[in-house]
Design a protein around this nucleic acid. Sequence first.
DNA 1: GGGTACGTAGCAAGCGCTTGGTCGGGACAG
DNA 2: CTGTCCCGACCAAGCGCTTGCTACGTACCC
Lengths: 209, 209
Amino acid sequence: MAAPTDRREVILREAAELFARQGVAATTVREIADAAGILSGSLYHHFASKDDIVDAVVSTFLTDLRKRYDEVLSAGGDVADRLRGLVVASLETVADHPRATEIYQNDAHRLAADNGYPYVEESAKAVRAAWVGLLEEGRATGAFRRDVPVKVMYPLLRDGLWLTARWFRPTKAYGHEQLAADYWRMFSSGLTAESTAGSAAKARPGSAA
Amino acid sequence: MAAPTDRREVILREAAELFARQGVAATTVREIADAAGILSGSLYHHFASKDDIVDAVVSTFLTDLRKRYDEVLSAGGDVADRLRGLVVASLETVADHPRATEIYQNDAHRLAADNGYPYVEESAKAVRAAWVGLLEEGRATGAFRRDVPVKVMYPLLRDGLWLTARWFRPTKAYGHEQLAADYWRMFSSGLTAESTAGSAAKARPGSAA
DNA sequence: GGGTACGTAGCAAGCGCTTGGTCGGGACAG
DNA sequence: CTGTCCCGACCAAGCGCTTGCTACGTACCC
């Protein structure tokens, strides 16, 4: 709208918007074409298939995400610093690709279950390895609590972070930086405290399901 | 399979399974009928439409959820106890309706955006009111931290809880009760601690977005 | 013998995608 | 400077198939 650059870019932008709002399966190529200002047949001059459009949106998002994670992990620092880095990197990725994040959250496992999205599952494993690695390191060094399994910690952090794409709309007064700071406040408290509420917290082995 | 009770029950169970796995839009009435052991046309002896099946699954889940929440809120106790009650009630609902929880998480806003699911949006508001009410009460009485807005606290709790339906598979050693206990450990630490990590936490007004 | 629970067959609409053609503008020979 | 050639970007039309759903027939059971 600001810069009517390439038609391909317009298609990708409008498709991501529709995919995020109504889901991939419920979005038709005619809707995408309408939003991009062309006819449905003309889509196939730019993309080989509908799946190809989904692929372009999601893979751009995943590539960017993994690049940020690699930078955080290779930067070093103590465990809490690196974990905080993952939190910030995740929310920055959400800020840059809000629609793609929603699509990935809603349809990732269906894309992975389908035929031709091998890198989706591979990226999911890499992302999981980054988080679980840090959490287990922090548990081993005593930086994090030991009375909650890592297998429970990780999904809580992951879902809380990625689902921000569904509800968070940044304003001038409260942007993604503030959100990251607040999330980190709650995460660090929740991960480090050994026992603050009236529940008998005894150290248990880190195994679940 | 064990007890081939009512065909209607079988249809609902199989439909919920399919809706959760592949999404509502991507599931066809023929798939549902196949899974239930009948032909697609025969579905319409039991249900008026595909939407009617979705409706039956989701509304049962929402009715059960709101009943549990009402019981918790009317039981009384201090703020932390009631909040803990909501956590337990939510995970119990997930345990009883795992597929419906997934469907609701993945497709709720699309159902609400569509035409004929008014109770979905209404239930979402009631659920949100329960959480936000308790969080603000705890913030006012000093039971919970004041340096993170309630509008940020609530989605973190909500998404972390409901998304358990996607990944958590209970075992004999670690069931929903243990999960609820561990979640509450992390929540209570994260909600009450004023500052444990190396971030300058000053009290800020509870406004976001 | 009426009602319930299905099967059978198929319709209208919509799906992703293909095909063949139009049109405008840049490249380039003369 | 002009004519022609070409090619990318798009339109118009429609193909084969699937979708949710319907009309009607039938077996069976109280």
